[in-house]
Design a protein around this nucleic acid. Structure first.
Length: 105
DNA sequence: CAGCTGACGCCAT
DNA sequence: TATGGCGCCAGCT
């Protein structure tokens, strides 16, 4: 794992409960404003079992990118369920209000 | 060393 | 609003 992955890990670990950050934002803070894809790769490569709040990372449109069907609930992703569990409200279109939940620095 | 891939972003249609 | 195409960068083969 490169240094970039480590930084992404640290940044994501610091996202407060009930808030989110975008891939681009994380990439920027990590040092490479255009490495948003690499951020997704970093999260995907993260071994399960860690307590990394990966579900608090969404794309620039405030939408979920990675969908994992949940047993008995076709149209909902695990990520969405986890966020709703923290109080994040999804709009009918399936997006969240970034202006309200995104962490700002 | 040279592609290939992806939990993305941005702009044109 | 919804798609589609292309650029980007780090890791993997």
């Amino acid at each position: 794992m490169g240094d970039f992955f480590k930084r992404v890990h640290v940044i994501v670990a610091g996202i407060p409960r009930g808030s989110v950050m975008t891939y681009g934002q994380i990439a920027s803070i990590a040092g490479n404003p255009r490495a948003s894809r690499a951020v997704g790769y970093a999260l995907r490569a993260t071994p399960s079992g860690t307590e990394l709040p990966w579900h608090r990372v969404v794309n620039s449109k405030g939408r979920i990118s990675f969908r994992e069907t949940l047993q008995g609930d076709d149209d909902r992703s695990l990520q969405r369920v986890l966020l709703e569990g923290e109080g994040v409200v999804f709009r009918g279109s399936g997006s969240i209000d970034l202006g309200k939940y995104q962490v700002s620095f």
